[in-house]
Amino acid sequence: MTDTTPLMVLAVFLASAVRYSMPLLVGTLGETVTERSGHLNLGVEGMMLMGGAAGFVTAIRTDSLVLSLLAAMGGAIAGALFYAVLTVTFRANQVVTGLALTLFGAGVANTVGKGAVHASTPPHIQAFFAWQPLRPDLSAIESVPVLGPAAVFLRTVLLEYNIYVYMAVLLAVVLSLLLHRTRLGLHLRVVGENPASADASGIRVAATRYGAILVGGALCGLAGLYLPLVHNGTWVENITGGRGWIVVALVIFVRWSPLRAMLGALLFGALEIIGFKLQGFPQLAGNPLFSQYIIGMYPYIITVIVLVANSARKKGGWRGPGALGLPYFREER
């Protein structure tokens, strides 16, 4: 292995940060879509678990990747549908409903996943996610000084990923374009900023919100599926381990932008692994700031700082969807 040069250590670290960031990124994209419509869905953790369990159990039962993906989306959408019906149609409190969804989702997922605890990802699906479609063969220039290591570095950082990673990045770009360049995105943003305005403009507020919540749910399901199917290769109880809450934090941290979500997820993903990577450095052992548990706090602390800074700014600037968390009822008087 040539992984011992400092450059390669960095490259491998960055690459694994990217891999760790995947469930966070996809979940964040989903929650961003939902929150852009004005709905704060705190049930991300529950939806990720539902999607993960449904998708993984389907994968080991049917041996089919396509069915597994559909099941992951379907499972999470089922959870999101509860949330949508309650908060959009029945105008229930969004925070409480989101918490209920987390409880419900964890319950369903851990019940369903019970049978899959000792199972592992079917081999051909494993192989599919081991496939690195963009990895070039550099054996010809690998030994060239300077150029060779530089090329290998870039390849490790950018091109040695499975298809899930590239699809996620593509998704972020597509969502960003959709949000800012299309009619659909404009409508979604208007609904999230000011539903009364949307209503008066002839935009279907409820339908748009349903759509955003369900799409958000589907993405959370795919994010949840990554953990058992790709990352762990097996199911364990509460496999998301709080990542759903990191997603809620991330959406704020990246200020509801799909493009910034990539950077934010990468940072939080890096923080997730940096903790135990640093265990290898005995000179840092006594320093609590570099303890993996303290590093585990950083995403939340950073989010708190962003939240406070965001609200403390005097004027101008956008502070998130204007109607976030508020129900809308046209005939209210």
Binding site: L42, G242, W245, I246, V248, A249, I252, M297, Y300, I301, T303, V304, L307, V308
Partner: peptide, 9 residues
């Protein structure tokens, strides 16, 4: 959101 973050800290 603030109190939520404080939980995890």
């Amino acid at each position: 959101l603030l109190t939520l973050m404080f939980n995890y800290i």
